[in-house]
Each structure stands twice: as structure tokens, then as C-alpha cells.
Amino acid sequence: MATVLYITAHPNDERASYSMAVGKEFIAAYREAKPQDEIVHLDLYKVDIPHIDTDVFSGWGKLASGTEFSALSEEEKRKVGRLGELVDQFVAADKYVFVNPMWNFSFPPLMKAYIDSICVAGKTFKYTAEGPVGLLKDKKLFHIQANGGVYSEGPAADIESGHRYLNIIAGFFGIPSVEKLFVEGMAAMPDQADTIKAKAIEKAKEAAARF
């Protein structure tokens, strides 16, 4: 049995979001293909994701110097402890599905905060004499992103940074398999939006069955 961490970064649900609609169908198809697997939904708009601030740096510094966790301030314990929970949950999963819209050529800020929480030396990567080495070499990642325009090809592909950044992070973690599905062009071609969505859902179902 595998554990799938389904990570969504959109304030709306599938009724108002193309990415969430396609993501929901992906997970439904995956669940049908592999009913024995556990799927854990992490809605980044509904969970606590501490930002790395002065409390976090202070808490980390104290722990690094040998201070017991119980001796940290209440805010330090809350934030540092929660960050630890997030990275442990990520490491424990076998597969990851990220779902988000493209905002201003990237993803929503909460997704960056989440990625910051899981970039932890000794957990998702380690430092060596030859440089950093990823520790998640047996994992898989699938990325679903909705773009109002077309960013998978042509000149606009050069300014899309959401998937490219996530792909860099996955490589940093050592994740060998990264797939993507762009749901795109709905704003540029509103008369074709429903067709674009339907085609993306079919592709998502096909991808889920082999994921």
C-alpha cells in the first residue's frame, strides 16, 4: 500500500477552479485504480503553515545549540513543531500530487510557504562534500496547474515559473519521476474553456491510472 499526499493550493473548490476540478477527477481515477492506497488531502488554504520568521530562526538556533525543545518559547515551540510535522508528513508519503493555479506566472504564495517548510536538511536532502544530495529517490510527483493562457509551448513558456520551480525542488529532493498536466488557454479562448477542461480531465484520468 502506498500513501499519496494530495496537496492543493487554491482558495476555491472544483466548482470555480479548473485546476481543482481536474485534480478531483485525477484523485477519483487514482482511487478507482488503486483502492488499497491511502490518499491524504492537504489543503494549503485550510492548514497551519508557519512562515519562517524570527521565532522559527530563534527556535532552530536554540535547538542547534543544545537547548531542549521544552525550553523554547510557546511561539517557538508552536511554529518549529508544526514545521517538523509538515516535513515528516511529506517524507512519509510515497507519491505527491500538487494542484494549483498559475498566478502572476507562478503559484499562490501559500504553496511557496509549504515548499519552504519541507526543504529541510537531513529530511528531504543532505549536504555532502560533493554538494547537496536528495533523500527522496524512491518517490513520484504529479503536478496539475491551470493557466489562463498557453504556457506549455511558445514564447510564453519562458516566463512560466511555477512548474519549473517545483521541478527544480523535486530534483533537489532526488525525486526521479515528475509529471505535469497543464490545463491551459481558458482565458485566452473562453469559447473553448469547457472543451479544454474536458480534455484535461480525460488526460488526468489516464495519467492517474498509471501513476
Rank of each mutant, 00 (worst) to 15 (best):
A2K: 15
T3F: 10
A9G: 11
A16K: 07
A21H: 02
A21Y: 01
I27T: 01
Y30V: 05
Y30E: 00
E32M: 05
K34Q: 14
P35R: 03
D37S: 04
V40T: 13
H41Q: 08
H41K: 09
D43V: 00
Y45R: 11
D48C: 10
I49A: 05
I52M: 09
I52P: 15
T54P: 01
T54G: 08
T54Q: 13
D55I: 07
F57D: 01
G59L: 03
G59V: 04
W60L: 07
K62T: 08
S65H: 09
G66L: 13
G66P: 12
G66H: 09
E68P: 06
A71L: 08
A71F: 06
A71R: 04
A71K: 13
S73T: 11
S73N: 02
S73C: 04
E75D: 08
L83T: 05
E85N: 03
E85W: 03
F90C: 03
A93T: 00
A93M: 06
D94K: 03
V97A: 00
F98Y: 07
V99E: 03
P101L: 02
M102H: 01
M102S: 03
N104K: 12
S106P: 02
F107R: 03
P108M: 13
P109N: 04
L110E: 09
M111P: 01
K112I: 12
K112E: 05
I115Q: 01
I115M: 03
I115Y: 00
D116A: 07
V120R: 01
A121I: 13
G122P: 14
K123S: 15
K123M: 15
F125R: 06
Y127N: 11
Y127H: 15
T128G: 09
T128C: 10
A129N: 12
E130A: 09
G131N: 10
G131Q: 14
G134M: 00
L135W: 04
D138F: 00
D138T: 03
K140Q: 10
L141K: 02
H143G: 13
A146Y: 04
A146W: 04
N147L: 10
N147V: 12
G149H: 11
V150G: 05
V150N: 06
Y151N: 09
G154L: 09
G154S: 11
A156D: 11
D158K: 13
I159F: 09
S161G: 14
G162C: 00
G162S: 09
N167L: 15
N167Y: 14
I169N: 06
A170P: 00
G171P: 05
F173S: 04
P176H: 08
S177C: 14
S177H: 15
V178D: 12
V178H: 13
L181E: 04
E184S: 09
G185P: 00
M186F: 10
A187Y: 11
A187D: 12
M189N: 15
P190A: 00
A200M: 05
I201S: 04
I201H: 02
I201C: 06
K203Q: 14
A204C: 10
K205C: 07
A207H: 11
A208T: 09
F211M: 02
F211V: 07
